[in-house]
């Protein structure tokens, strides 16, 4: 069978095709799935466990489970929600290793910023802002933090997050809304971020008629 590849040499087959090819014993198909999703799962594991070694083990364990489950996997279009769900469960079930000092999410970002261009003062300012935001994210509850991480770090849409967390999409939207509201409350204390504090409900005038948001252009118009 001829394998379709893009300019970068990556396999362009869909997850559905790759799963069926891997089921038939094609090692390259499983490797293509691995290379496609390993970084995302690694970042997810890193965000939850805050330990790079544990995150790598989570990647291996996740794909090992996928390999064992190949016979019963039936991905519609993307295998990503299924893999992320397994990775989330493995991450939360993993006990922290003894003697390992867990770094914060902010430390992981600092490592990624090591090669960033810019003046030292600019880098320091950006790092401080990131530290504030990620510190506020870490203060969220586990469910709300997971929604934020899956959406803003892994780029999953709300439907995929719902599939990963095994809950309705409305619940994901509600959790995301709550998380953003909590973050806004936290971050409003830092004026350098330009976020206004929430107005109390009692002060909301019912007669506000004029538009306060800029209309967003609707697609297709």
């Amino acid at each position: 069978m001829k394998i379709k590849r893009d300019a970068a040499g990556a396999d362009t087959r869909t997850d559905h095709e790759l799963v069926y090819a891997a089921r038939d014993g094609e090692t390259a198909a499983f490797d293509a799935l691995f290379y496609k999703y390993r970084d995302g799962i690694f970042r997810l594991g890193l965000a939850i466990t805050k330990d790079p070694s544990s995150a790598e083990e989570i990647v291996v364990d996740t794909f090992a489970r996928a390999h064992r489950a190949l016979a019963r996997l039936e991905p519609d279009s993307s295998l990503r929600p299924w893999l992320y769900r397994v990775a989330v469960n493995l991450s939360y079930n993993r006990r922290p290793r003894k003697g390992v000092v867990l770094s914060s999410l902010d430390d992981a970002v600092d490592e990624a910023l090591a090669n960033e261009d810019g003046s030292p003062s600019y880098q320091a300012e950006q790092a401080e802002l990131r530290r504030l935001v990620l510190g506020a994210v870490e203060e969220l509850g586990p469910k709300h933090r997971l929604v934020v991480v899956l959406h803003y770090l892994n780029g999953l849409n709300l439907a995929e997050i719902a599939e990963v967390m095994d809950c309705p999409v409305g619940t994901v939207k509600s959790r995301l809304h709550y998380a953003l509201r909590r973050l806004r409350t936290h971050l409003a204390a830092h004026p350098e971020l330009g976020i206004e504090p929430r107005r109390p409900l009692i002060a909301t005038p019912l007669r506000a008629r004029k538009p306060v948001t800029a209309p967003v252009p609707i697609e297709g118009e």
């Binding site: 390993r38 690694f42 970002v109 910023l113 950006q126 802002l129 990620l134 803003y152």
Partner: peptide
């Protein structure tokens, strides 16, 4: 702010082999 804060972390990669 969240998109900006998570942007560097989205560049983290791993070199695990299959």
């Amino acid at each position: 702010a969240l998109r900006s804060a998570f942007a560097p972390l989205r560049e983290r990669r791993t070199i695990i082999a299959p």
